[in-house]
Nucleic acid binder design. Structure first.
Length: 253
DNA sequence: GTTGAGCGTT
C-alpha cells in the first residue's frame, strides 16, 4: 500500500531528501521504496503527481534517515535501470529541508564518512556526456511546456472570454511582445552568425550600438513613428495585413 | 495511448 505522500510528511527534521529523476511515469513510490530501502532506511517516499490528471511527473523524492545511506543509495541507485529506464538519484537541492542539507553538507563529507575512506565519484555523468546536451535542452520544452502552457492559456483565455470579447489591452501586449521577441531573437542570431563585422564594423566607435532592450528603443520606435504617425491605426497599431482584415469570427466572438 | 527536463505533498 502506498501510504507515502498521502499521510503527508512524517518527519523531516532528521531526514535527508533524495531526488529521483528519469523514472518512468508508471513508477510509483511503492516501487522505489523497496529499492531504496535496500540500501538504507527510507523514511518516506513521495512522488509529486499532477493534480488534474494525477499522473506522475517523472520524478520522486526519497527521504533517508541517514546521510551516509542516502549517499550510498545515490551512488548505487543512480543510473540503475528501473522499469526499463535509468533513474537519476541525487540529493534534493530545493525543498522544505534544503537548508538542512546545505548545512549538513551531506554530499561533501560527513563525520561518519570522514573516517571511512570512501572515494566518492566526481559525478561523471556518462549518460549526459553520451547524450547530446543540446537535444536534451531542446526537448525540455515539451512535456513541461505543454502542461504549463495549456493550463495557463486555457485559464486566461477562458477568463477573458468570459468577461468580454472587446477591450483586451493585455491581449495586444502579449501578442506584440511575443512577436517582438521572436524578431529580436532572429536578428540577434543573424548578427552573430551572419556577419557581425559588416553590420557593426566598429562597435566601440559606433555611437549607437544595437539596442537590445530598453537601451535605446528610440531607434526602432522612431522609425515607425516618424514616417507615418498618422498612418497608424487609432488602435495604436500600424497598418497590418492581419489587423487590417480581422476575421468575422473575431468580431463575433 | 503519447511526453523526458527538473525539485516536493497531507
Amino acid at each position: 500500500m502506498s501510504h507515502f505522500g498521502r499521510s503527508g510528511p512524517p518527519d523531516i527534521k532528521d531526514t535527508y531528501s533524495l531526488l529521483v529523476l528519469n523514472i518512468t511515469f508508471r513508477t510509483s513510490a511503492d516501487d522505489l521504496y523497496p529499492l531504496f530501502d535496500k540500501y538504507g532506511k527510507v523514511v518516506d517516499v513521495f512522488i509529486p503527481r499532477d493534480r488534474r490528471t494525477g499522473d506522475s511527473r517523472g520524478f520522486a523524492f526519497v527521504r533517508y534517515k541517514y546521510a551516509d545511506e542516502a549517499q550510498k543509495a545515490v551512488e548505487k541507485l543512480d543510473g540503475r535501470l528501473v522499469d526499463g529506464r535509468e533513474i537519476m538519484v541525487q540529493f534534493a537541492k530545493y525543498g522544505p529541508n534544503a537548508e538542512k542539507i546545505h548545512k549538513g553538507r551531506i554530499v561533501e563529507s560527513d563525520s561518519k564518512s570522514k573516517g571511512r575512506s570512501r572515494s566518492r565519484s566526481p559525478r561523471p555523468r556518462y549518460r549526459d556526456e553520451h547524450r547530446d546536451r543540446d537535444s536534451r535542452k531542446r526537448s525540455r520544452s515539451r512535456s513541461r511546456g505543454r502542461y504549463d502552457r495549456d493550463r495557463h492559456r486555457g485559464k486566461e483565455r477562458d477568463h477573458y472570454r468570459s468577461r468580454s470579447h472587446s477591450g483586451s489591452p493585455d491581449y495586444h501586449k502579449d501578442r506584440g511582445r511575443g512577436r517582438y521577441d521572436d524578431k529580436r531573437r532572429s536578428r540577434s542570431r543573424s548578427y552573430g552568425s551572419a556577419s557581425p563585422a559588416r553590420r557593426s564594423p566598429s562597435p566601440r566607435r559606433s555611437p549607437s550600438p544595437p539596442p537590445s532592450r530598453g537601451g535605446s528603443p528610440s531607434g526602432r520606435n522612431r522609425k515607425e513613428r516618424s514616417p507615418t504617425p498618422n498612418s497608424v491605426s487609432p488602435r495604436g497599431r500600424p497598418a497590418d495585413s492581419r489587423s487590417q482584415s480581422p476575421r468575422k469570427s473575431d468580431a463575433d466572438e
